[in-house]
């Protein structure tokens, strides 16, 4: 489904990604772990098409189509979804209006009729329940004044509404309390499907107890330095990143959510 070959990306002239290779097949769940500042969010943002980052080398293709030729909105319509590590607050745009506009943009792209306000309200309320977010949050500004955990649940809410082909979850588990982690994991597991792939960035092995990955990768210094199965996460939890030749002190989970 997703194929990344020798991907280099830089910001303000500084190279952050230094040759990433990654193959993700439909139905798979991949986890990416790695020290703070190693480039995990950069990779996620580059996949979503954030122009702050310049791709200087390499290829990304989604089901054979060159992703780098597509604008961010076109990538989204082709099925790329990024749950942001830091979801953006947009006061003045209601969450409901935002969600409906997004869903209808996708529907229009697929040649389906738009949903009217009433239809969408019904759907949005159902999905809100699924992520345990009070429907009152639909009326607020996008992420406006949401707590860290509420923002993360709002990201999963969007993923569930938009039904992407590839969901990239950038630390969606950070800053969640134990119950919220359950809720979010349930949401992510609900996304799992044969025709869908999930790429999760996480610092915690505990998430992987709930969402069992098929593959685990370690990203350090802009490269994938190790890949393995589920057991790699456990090993990292025990041994840190030092044995991989990666600076260990940076490997502690970030306090920021």
């Amino acid at each position: 489904m997703l194929s990344i070959k020798n991907l280099h990306a830089s910001v303000e002239g500084e190279e952050i990604l230094k040759g990433i290779n990654l193959e993700i097949k439909a139905g798979e769940v991949h986890a990416i772990m790695g020290p703070n500042g190693s480039g995990k969010s950069t990779l996620s943002q580059v996949l979503a098409g954030n122009e702050t980052f310049e791709v200087t080398q390499g290829e990304i293709s989604l089901n054979g189509e060159n992703l780098l030729d597509l604008e961010t909105e076109e990538r989204a319509r082709e099925g790329i979804f990024l749950a942001f590590q830091y979801p953006v607050e947009i006061p003045g745009v209601s969450n409901l209006q935002f969600l409906r506009t997004a869903v209808n943009a996708m529907r229009t792209h697929r040649g389906e009729p738009e949903m009217n306000a009433a239809e969408f309200m019904k759907l949005a309320k159902e999905v809100s329940k699924q992520v345990d977010l009070d429907p009152a949050f639909l009326k607020r500004g996008v992420n406006e004044g949401f707590s860290g955990g509420e923002k993360k649940r709002n990201e999963i809410l969007q993923a569930l509404l938009l039904q992407p082909k590839l969901a990239i979850l950038d630390e969606t588990d950070s800053g969640l309390d134990i119950d919220a982690l359950q809720v979010v994991s349930k949401g992510v597991n609900a996304l799992r499907a044969e025709d869908r792939a999930i790429l999760m960035v996480t610092h915690y092995q505990r998430l992987l107890n709930h969402i069992v990955p098929d593959h685990v990768h370690v990203l350090a210094g802009g490269r994938i330095v190790k890949s393995g199965g589920r057991e790699l996460a456990l090993e990292l939890e025990e041994r840190g990143y030092g044995w991989l030749g990666v600076k260990d002190e940076e490997a502690t989970p970030s306090a920021a959510s």
Binding site: G49, V88, G92, A102, A105
Partner: peptide
């Protein structure tokens, strides 16, 4: 960043700019 967030959900540029300006 707000604009990127909106278009990353499939919302077109024109609509995203409109939403932000109306906001």
């Amino acid at each position: 960043i707000s604009l990127f967030y909106l278009v990353s959900r499939g919302i077109g540029r024109r609509e995203a700019n409109t939403l932000l300006t109306m906001a």
